[in-house]
């Protein structure tokens, strides 16, 4: 049976129990159980420095499940480097809210146009809307 490390998203207003429920549901769907959980330190959620080291220090974990793909979109670039390192280190990489699983580097390559478009959509969402910008002009 797969054993999952789960990563909640500390930036969202979605309460932790709600996130845990989604994470557990995804882990079970992939034939496993969550055995540990954690989160990135709030001050460095853009760089996600915690998870890879934690996985390497935690024996017996086969997979990691994040609450949302958005956790990889908080920096200036989509964090492809971390995705690649997690998978190259032999872990399965999953996203609960999007019901998405990546088990090989080829999975990343196959989904890349969709991931990049999502990343750009996130950035647009964080920018002031055209309505707000136009209100200053018109």
């Amino acid at each position: 049976m797969k054993t999952f490390y789960s990563m909640i998203d500390g930036r969202l207003t979605s309460p932790q129990p709600e996130q845990h429920e989604f994470l557990q549901k995804k882990a079970r769907k992939e034939g496993g159980e969550i055995v540990f959980y954690g989160a990135e330190e709030y001050r460095c959620f853009r760089d996600q420095p915690f998870i890879l080291n934690k996985l390497r220090r935690t024996p017996g974990v086969t997979d990691v499940v994040f609450f949302t793909f958005e956790q990889f979109c908080y920096g200036d670039k989509l964090n492809l480097k971390l995705m690649k390192e997690i998978i190259s280190s032999g872990y399965g990489l999953h996203f609960a809210r999007e019901d998405l699983s990546l088990n090989s580097l080829q999975d990343i390559v196959d989904n890349l146009p969709v991931f990049l478009a999502y990343f750009y959509a996130c950035k647009q969402k964080d920018s002031p809307s055209h309505g707000e910008l136009l209100r200053g002009i018109l």
Binding site: T68, F95, D99, V109, P113, V114, L116, A121
Partner: peptide, 28 residues
């Protein structure tokens, strides 16, 4: 694929149907 997604989570609510070669080349 590349238009703003509103409040819908694009990866959750939508699925890809057609991806052009240009988008694949750009991504690569």
């Amino acid at each position: 694929l590349f238009s703003p997604s509103g409040l819908k989570n694009q990866l959750q609510f939508f699925k890809p149907l057609k991806i052009s070669n240009l988008a694949k080349l750009g991504a690569s």
